[in-house]
Every structure is written in C-alpha cells, then in structure tokens.
Amino acid sequence: MTLASPERATTVEPVLYKVSDAERALRLSRTVIYGLIRTGRLRTVKEGRARRIPASAIHEYTALLEREAGESK
C-alpha cells in the first residue's frame, strides 16, 4: 500500500451537499436547515429521491444574511 504524497492530496469542494453536510457547513441544526428549505430561503435540488443543497445555494444564503445584516444597521 502506498500513501499519497502531499502534493497529490487535494481537497475537492462538494458541488451538492447532503442536509447533514449543510448543517456542518452553516453551523445550523437540522431543524433550522429544513425550515430554511421550507420557507424558500435555502434552495435545493432533487437527484432521484435525494434532496441536495447546491454549493451555490449555500453561498446565496450567506449573501442574503449579509445583505439583511447591512439593512438592519
């Protein structure tokens, strides 16, 4: 068995997140994630029976939070 050299080890950003992965990425609970999906604040896609959250939707949601924080000042 050979180990991968450090220069070959790369981290690939996911394109689609499971809800559990989005929980970790956003540091939010499962209940909050599903609430955001239900209210349309966090966009999802379906692949077969699986619900996935595109990386772009996570970025859009964080941008929305930043805009809202700027408006409340």
Rank of each mutant, 00 (worst) to 15 (best):
L65A: 08
L26Y: 00
R30H: 14
I37E: 01
L16A: 11
S29H: 07
P54Q: 09
R67D: 05
L26T: 03
P14S: 06
T39H: 05
T62D: 04
G35V: 06
I37S: 03
S5R: 12
P54D: 03
H59N: 05
K18E: 12
S20I: 04
I33M: 04
E13I: 10
A25R: 02
L28I: 06
A50V: 04
K18N: 09
T2Q: 13
E47D: 10
S56A: 15
L36R: 03
V19Y: 00
E68L: 11
L3N: 11
S5C: 11
I33T: 01
G40N: 05
V45K: 11
V15S: 09
I37F: 03
S29C: 07
Y61R: 00
V19P: 01
M1I: 09
L28R: 02
K18G: 06
S56R: 08
E13N: 13
A9S: 12
Y61C: 02
A63M: 07
S5Y: 07
A25H: 09
S5A: 14
A63W: 01
A63D: 09
A69H: 10
A57E: 04
R49D: 05
A22G: 03
S72T: 12
E7T: 14
L65C: 14
I53V: 13
I58V: 12
L42A: 00
R27I: 04
I33C: 03
R27G: 10
G40R: 08
T31E: 13
V12W: 06
T44K: 04
M1Q: 06
R49K: 12
R67G: 08
R52E: 01
V12N: 05
V15W: 04
Y17N: 02
A22M: 04
R24P: 00
S56Y: 00
I53Q: 00
A69Y: 06
T39S: 15
L42I: 03
E68M: 07
E47P: 00
V12K: 05
L65I: 02
A55C: 07
V15I: 14
P14R: 06
E13D: 09
L28T: 01
I37A: 03
L16Y: 10
M1F: 11
R43Q: 15
L36Y: 05
A69F: 11
R27W: 03
S56I: 12
T2L: 14
A25T: 04
A50C: 05
E13Q: 10
E23P: 00
V32S: 10
G48A: 04
P54R: 05
R49T: 12
V15T: 12
L36W: 03
E7I: 15
S56H: 07
R8T: 13
G40W: 02
L36P: 00
E60R: 01
A4N: 11
R24T: 10
E47G: 02
G70T: 07
I58W: 02
K73C: 11
R27M: 05
R38M: 04
A22V: 03
